[in-house]
Nucleic acid binder design. Structure first.
Lengths: 128, 128
DNA sequence: ATAATTGTATTAATAATATAATACAATAAT
DNA sequence: ATTATTGTATTATATTATTAATACAATTAT
């Protein structure tokens, strides 16, 4: 299921990488509403992590309403179709804001970014 | 000069807040190319910080080409150069590419991003 | 030349964060 | 009822990041 895409040499903490991977699975549609996730101990074994690390990821995902945890039974994906869009939008906007902040602090202008986007969307069109 | 806008209860480290404040001064135009900044020790006294904390902020700003430090004399704003630096442009593009990749993998479209950018550039215009 | 002022470098102390070890408590299966 | 499986809570350890103490070196002013 998870092609152990973890990078142990990255400065990004493992539990955050796990969160990110699962969010991607959900938002891309590979994991759907109601699907069961591996148990904490299962996933820990697969990824060769301490169960607490996985637990922390799951716990965070539950706080963000991505999944639901039930003691004794397991964890399930929990987003309603309607929620998905706003969720996705929120995530994209977060990413965008943080990119924009960086870009501006580096010295780029909004105009620069517009041009970049134009260039890339032209490429995108070509590649379809 | 700096209305001690530091928030010691914030999780954002002090030296980053200092960086942010100075960038704001520069990007807003209140500090202009060639202007002299307070010396490390001066600013440390004003903000009641350890000089090393200010030094770290200045050091980072110099690395990012926002200011120039000269031992024995002080620190000066050096924004114009930074803006024109093609190396910086490369950085922005790298950031952009990585943002775009993430956004697309989450499920956003180019159109979504265009709209976001429009929204933010409108805000930017309003705040000028 | 000398002294004062500046940024820099080195090291130590502290604080924050991430990970691990272990024990606990609710649910499910038998 | 009992046992195994699950998520949770508590505590300890390791790692990293931040801040501080101190000494150093280049520049400026006298």
């Amino acid at each position: 299921m998870f092609l152990s895409d973890l990078d142990f040499s990255s400065p990004v903490p493992i539990y955050r990488q796990v969160i990110y991977l699962i969010k991607l699975e959900i938002l891309s549609g590979r994991l759907r509403d109601g699907d069961q996730l591996p148990t904490i101990r299962e996933l820990a074994k697969i990824l060769k992590l301490n169960p607490n690390t996985v637990a922390k990821a799951y716990y965070t995902l539950e706080n963000e309403r991505f999944i639901e945890s039930k003691r004794g039974s397991g964890n399930w994906v929990n987003y309603k179709k309607a929620k998905l869009d706003s969720l996705r939008r929120g995530m994209v906007e977060d990413e965008f804001r943080s990119f924009l902040e960086t870009a501006l602090s580096i010295g780029a202008t909004i105009e620069d970014i517009k041009n970049l986007l134009k260039r890339y969307s032209d490429n995108d069109r070509k590649n379809r």
